[in-house]
Write a protein that binds this DNA or RNA. Structure first.
Lengths: 192, 192
DNA sequence: AGGCAAACTTTCCCACTGCGCATATATTTG
DNA sequence: CAAATATATGCGCAGTGGGAAAGTTTGCCT
């Protein structure tokens, strides 16, 4: 391992983050379609072309935070002790995620609400989730489970998505974790 | 009700279908990104501007068939006799869909494979599914079920998606309906 | 330090897309 | 059959994506 992150990479990450934040702020403020790339690059002090070096479009810039979260969750799952079943590893990872992130969860809700208003964003978000589903399935492939990894991963993510939805709708009366638990329990019930 | 569909509307639908087919064919042939709108309109014998009157972009043109399928499935669900539980109505509708469509299922697999190669397409496809999920939840809201409609709809669509995936991967050894059945059964199993 | 190579950013530049507007053409209705 | 209505087309503009080349910053080696 190399603790030297390197100045170059640090600056790059910094820029990316700055662009992302500018994009998100502007999108929340004016609505996504009213935001042009020029506004973003202007707010982030980079050239129009450089933007394209970092993101393929405004949507990607706005959703960059989401991707980071996804990567983190994935690593948490991979880091779970091998004794756990697939399902346990997933559940535990969300808990850790929840405690790790702490308050930013609220800002995450903002992004979710924003996405609901803009189909293009929603689509890309779902695409990201699909990618996560694949990676999650791989990550839990070696663990004990009553069903194939792909099914486990899919069911888990659906529960997570539904839970987030109802959570944002009921104005955070309960904690997100509680809603997730309940939804997971519902998913496990047989359908007839 | 007005049995007169009107010549105008018929021609319109015809044009839309023609554009769709041209787009799909070209996309499969050259890959989506290598296809420009001009190629499509050229193949469909309409003007560049007219294309925009029908579709917002090439992706929409390619996925038009999918949207049609979605609408049809939705109507099938709505048409199920009221006695059925939510789950039964859904299952029955897929069966009917399967028998109704007959062979085109194969051409549907083509679209699926195509989508897998082009993230933009996949995203939009997932977006369409999300829309269907909402509509399905509404459509089964009044039926008997052990879980909320949203959960039922989500679980059902996930099963459908997973089943289609494995089905296209195993080269259609079994019938799609069988794979769906199996996946639905797996989904119903408890996770621990 | 000094200097070189690789990586990154910027400036031009052009093709593609989405869409508004005015106009021409076709369909329906009374 | 003529007026009302809806659709198709051509033109043009703003926004986007991405290639090429020149300038700048960073990493590394002597």
């Amino acid at each position: 391992m190399d603790t030297t992150v390197g100045l170059r990479e640090r600056k790059k990450a910094e820029t990316r983050q700055a662009v992302h934040e500018a994009a998100l702020r502007l999108a929340v403020e004016h609505g996504l379609d009213a935001v042009t790339v020029e506004m973003i690059v202007d707010a982030a002090n980079i050239s129009r072309r450089t933007f394209s070096n970092y993101f393929a479009g405004k949507e990607d810039a706005v959703l960059y935070g989401e991707e980071q979260r996804i990567r983190r969750l994935l690593e948490l799952v991979r880091a779970q002790p091998p004794g756990m079943t697939a399902w346990q590893a997933l559940r535990r990872s969300v808990e850790e995620m929840y405690h790790l992130e702490g308050e930013p969860v609220r800002e995450w809700a903002v992004r979710t609400r924003l996405a609901r208003r803009h189909p293009a964003l929603l689509d890309r978000q779902l695409g990201n989730l699909a990618g996560l589903e694949r990676d999650l399935a791989d990550a839990i492939a070696d663990r004990e489970s009553t069903v194939p990894p792909a099914v486990t991963a899919a069911a888990f993510l659906v529960a997570l998505r539904l839970a987030t939805h109802t959570w944002t709708e009921e104005d955070e009366a309960r904690t997100l974790l509680d809603v997730v638990d309940e939804t997971l329990a519902l998913m496990a019930r047989p359908f007839t």
